[in-house]
Design a protein around this nucleic acid. Structure first.
Lengths: 266, 266
DNA sequence: AGTTAATATGTAACATGTTAGATGTTATTG
DNA sequence: CAATAACATCTAACATGTTACATATTAACT
């Protein structure tokens, strides 16, 4: 299930202030998504509370991944807190998590900055991504069902539409969704979340590359190859296609570095 | 109950704070690892500050992994803060990180508990570990140098000594070190930290199994096979040995569950 | 002038007070 | 007696005040 939290609050820094509902607003306080309304207690069912820090985290993460907050840019906790109408605490908590994720860098007593891109870190993330997702797709190909394949093909259809209408953002979202679905298809609890987390660095780069790349059609073809392999339960072919697909990013990254060196560290 | 922590010298804190420059006083007299500082500014060098929350995190993590804090046990933040002589803030921060890592579970407005073991989560962690470490060892085997192999063999020698003297804890530490070294040998920035983090769940299980298992000698043999494969640059053999090695844990886990069901969730 | 010491500033780290919500207990009601 | 409502309790979440420290700036000194 997708957590659908703070998406509607369109966060834009610097100019427009984003609105998290006022202190005790509808989303203020912890609203918990009520799943099957059994008589079970909060603790027994696995309802994850959507706290303010979670919302702040989502908003900031989104802002960073989408480069609304540029690499190297300072993040003033107090200002963010003010803009979001919350105290410094949930902002700090959110930023701590982002720091663990490698999206921001905290220099004690000095400042917090959106992490610059580092080729070596990206290389590692790429490596991890390939390791995890080729392993995941192997399992997925082994246990693929007609229903899953159908959902994958539905996704591809939507990708095709997005590509036709040059809808970069939509395509990107569908791309993510596809990879998530493949992780899920591996049938391992929590794997998608782990993979998504390790992909953070790469997501950021891909979003930056998005507008340079005329690669949507090509990417779509690769996705089709991948899905076909899963549909045919061709384990090795699926893994190879996935590795090939993920590896594509490398060269474009170097282009990006020469075009926009300020985004990179070192 | 947290005995390690409240060992000594909570007194040194409250009063002398002002007079002593290293205000980052030791917590419970443990782990104040100060890295030497060069001429560079804090921000330029990537010295990670050892803050109180870092220390609390290390202490709690250690306590959890070693089962000093048992699965299911409640963690009272305020009490922990009191025992460690710090405020609730760094304790909360540390616990948040542990929650991200899956070692504790926070139920809002209710309580914080050491996460119980979940077979499905452990299975996923196992999967991730195999994916990452077999990929890492492939790279390591490709780029192995005489020096690295030497260090690996040194580690094995120490493992042998630990096994001979039935030093479980020492053996365990060396085991971790070996896996860390292999990750490092892959030559990817930050890979070791990522792998270590994903290993948390498994580390906990392994520590629990440690005293049941008479497997030290067998494990040592597996390690030797792995190192030999790296030394011989036998990429596939190394990967296979690693997978075989990591997979061993599965059956023992089921034994543990039947012996100590209270450690498990569901 | 160049180097070092003093000081000012801003921020994260830390401490502590306050609020809201989850749960268990007791009272109340049918 | 069972169901439920009122209440007490406890805890994480949140808010805000305070401290320490990294860094920039200025002053003092050789």
């Amino acid at each position: 299930m997708l957590d659908v939290i703070g998406q509607e609050s369109n966060a834009s820094f610097g100019e427009i202030e984003f609105s998290l509902p006022p202190a005790t607003g509808p989303i203020g306080g912890t609203l918990n998504v009520q799943l099957g309304s059994g008589g079970k207690s909060f603790r027994e069912q696995k309802v994850v509370a959507v706290t303010r820090k979670d919302q702040v985290y989502s908003i900031l993460r989104q802002a960073i991944i989408s480069s609304q907050l540029a690499p190297g840019e300072a993040i003033r906790k107090e200002l963010v807190a003010l803009q979001l109408g919350v105290s410094r605490t949930p902002v700090s908590d959110a930023i701590n998590r982002l720091a663990d994720e490698g999206l921001v860098e905290i220099y004690p007593q000095t400042g917090t900055f959106v992490a610059r891109l580092r080729l070596d870190k990206i290389e590692t993330a790429q490596f991890v991504r390939i390791a995890l997702e080729t392993a995941a797709i192997r399992r997925a190909a082994e246990r693929s069902s007609a229903e899953i394949v159908q959902r994958l093909r539905d996704n591809l259809d939507r990708q095709r539409k997005a590509a036709d209408s040059r809808d970069f953002e939509g395509f990107y979202a569908l791309d993510e969704e596809l990879h998530d679905m493949i992780c899920d298809a591996a049938g391992l609890a929590g794997l998608r979340e782990i993979a998504a987390k390790e992909r953070s660095q790469i997501d950021r780069v891909r979003r930056l590359l998005l507008h340079y790349e005329t690669r949507m059609v090509e990417t779509l073809k690769e996705h089709q190859t991948i899905v076909d392999a899963i549909a045919g339960s061709s384990v090795e072919r699926a893994a190879a296609a996935m590795e090939e697909h993920i590896s594509k990013m490398g060269k474009m990254l170097l282009q990006l570095q020469s075009k926009r060196p300020e985004l990179f560290a070192e």
